[in-house]
Simulated assay, not measured.
Amino acid sequence: MTWVDFWALIGTLNGEASEANCQRLAEELGSRSVADIVGFAERHAEALYRLDQEKFGALPVADLTDRDGRPFPQSADHFLYTRCAVVAAGRAVWESVFFDVDKFAPYTSTEHDAEWLLYVPDKAYELATGQEWDRSTRYCFETFSNKDGWPHLQN
C-alpha cells in the first residue's frame, strides 16, 4: 500500500479515531485484499514508529496536573494513544509535528484517546478472512521501540 492510499483511508476517520469511525475504517479495509490490509498495517506501524521520539513523549498530558499543580507526564500507553490521535488527524498534521513539537502537544489531551486505531488492521483481517491475525510488522509501534528517537536510552 502506498502512503497516498494509507492517508486516504486515514482520511475517512475525519480526524477522529472514535470507536465508530475505526469500525467503519475496519469494514472498508476488510472489504479489500489481504495484501491491502497488511500494507495498511505496515504503514500504520511505521507512522507510529516515526512519532516514537523523546521530544514528543516527554510532553506532559495537556489537560492534567498532579496534586501540586505540576504537569502530568504521559505514560507509555498514553503516548502510544496520543501518537494514534496524531495519525488519525491526517497526513498534514502528522507531517507538521516533525517540524513543530508544539503542534503535537494538543493531542496529548485525554480528549484525544485514539486507542481504537490500533485495532483496525486486526479487525479488517478478521472481517476479510474469518480468522484472527497473529500480526507482526516491520516496525514496532510500542513506545521506546524507536531507538533513534530516544538517544538517551541507548546503551
Rank of each mutant, 00 (worst) to 15 (best):
I10R: 03
I10S: 02
G11R: 02
T12E: 12
T12W: 06
L13M: 02
N14F: 01
N14S: 10
G15M: 07
G15R: 00
E16Y: 05
E16G: 05
S18G: 10
N21S: 15
N21C: 10
C22P: 06
C22E: 04
C22Q: 06
R24K: 12
R24H: 14
L25C: 10
L25A: 04
A26I: 04
A26W: 05
A26G: 13
E27S: 04
E27D: 09
L29Q: 04
G30Y: 09
S31E: 13
S31H: 01
R32M: 14
V34K: 07
V34N: 09
A35M: 10
D36H: 02
D36R: 00
I37C: 08
V38I: 14
G39E: 12
G39R: 09
G39V: 14
F40E: 02
A41M: 09
E42C: 12
E42R: 04
E42L: 03
R43F: 00
R43Q: 15
H44A: 09
A45E: 04
E46V: 08
E46A: 11
E46M: 12
A47D: 03
L48A: 13
R50L: 15
L51A: 12
D52E: 10
D52I: 05
K55G: 05
A58G: 04
L59V: 03
P60V: 07
P60N: 06
V61F: 00
V61E: 07
V61C: 13
L64A: 07
L64E: 11
L64Y: 01
L64V: 03
T65F: 07
T65Y: 08
T65G: 04
T65R: 14
D66S: 10
